[in-house]
Design a protein around this nucleic acid. Structure first.
Lengths: 154, 154
DNA sequence: TAGAATCAGCACTAATCTGGTGCACTTTCC
DNA sequence: GGAAAGTGCACCAGATTAGTGCTGATTCTA
């Protein structure tokens, strides 16, 4: 399915909130109460974002989370990679374009006719995510400009 | 998850095969044997493609399927829409940009901060699929040209 | 120094989705 | 009339996702 998971959704909401509170430390409780997100689940998500070094965590009574990157540098691709892993459009796609990893992964290997073109498509989707910065998610009106033209050639 | 389902994958493989045999009638059995796809599942997929009027079916002993559209007009967006439904990146997105359908669908309705920007992103993804024609999937080498530049503005 | 508030780690459950199958039926060609 | 093809509906099993429980570690504040 072509859909972001709830985890990614919650992660993005949290990141947007942190960006608007830049400089401050935001607790999981605050976010979960404000946006009606299950607190425990949000905590899992934030933990993963922390492991991916997209945010910093601060323990203790007045602890919480804050952005580790500027909203201009943090992109949707970072978030998706941290919470879902890098997307592979078809089951037989390898990781890198070179695809030196698991050559036998695709049962249709020698005859699969759609593999290589779909890899290009995935690259296009990935570019789209790489160009979608957290900043562009902040203010719906302004953000539009940040979604730059995308080319899917070669 | 950002991934096409097996159904879509099988559908694309079948469509590519039909395009290469344009004019002929291709049976589900032929495709399933050639590409090692479970026949019954493929039949389900082809049925859906038929309902979406992307292919024509011909019953009887020498029956089978054939393209209802030219490979230049049939796009990935058609196939995905027929087999998975139009993608909605987040759970709270409505169908149309106007979103007059289910106003209460999103529990975070008034406060969800990522909704509108992600709708724009989805539009970008959708454009990407609309510009990916069946023709561009045919010959990996030539097809590249058909993936035109994509703009995600406004 | 005690307590409260916070993050961290692990395991677990329930619901949903996906891939795949069974079977009986209809249509059409030979 | 029979074989070969598509159609319709229901069903099963495994994987994924959403969400929860509980315990422990850290750190601020009173």
């Amino acid at each position: 399915m072509i859909q972001l998971t709830k985890r990614t959704e919650y992660g993005l909401i949290a990141l947007v909130h942190m960006a608007e509170r830049e400089g401050h430390c935001v607790s999981a409780r605050e976010i979960s109460e404000r946006f009606l997100i299950p607190k425990r689940l949000l905590a899992e998500v934030l933990k993963d974002l922390c492991r991916a070094e997209l945010i910093d965590s601060h323990r203790g009574a007045t602890g919480g989370y804050s952005l580790a990157l500027s909203p201009d540098d943090l992109t949707l691709s970072h978030v998706v990679a941290a919470l879902e892993g890098r997307p592979s459009l078809t089951s037989c796609e390898g990781l890198a374009p070179g695809h030196s990893g698991h050559p036998g992964e695709c049962g249709l290997e020698p005859r699969c006719p759609i593999r290589s073109p779909l890899q290009r498509l995935r690259e296009g989707l990935w570019q789209l995510m790489q160009r979608t910065t957290l900043r562009s998610l902040l203010k719906p009106a302004e953000g539009a400009v940040a979604l730059a033209p995308l080319t899917v050639l070669s």
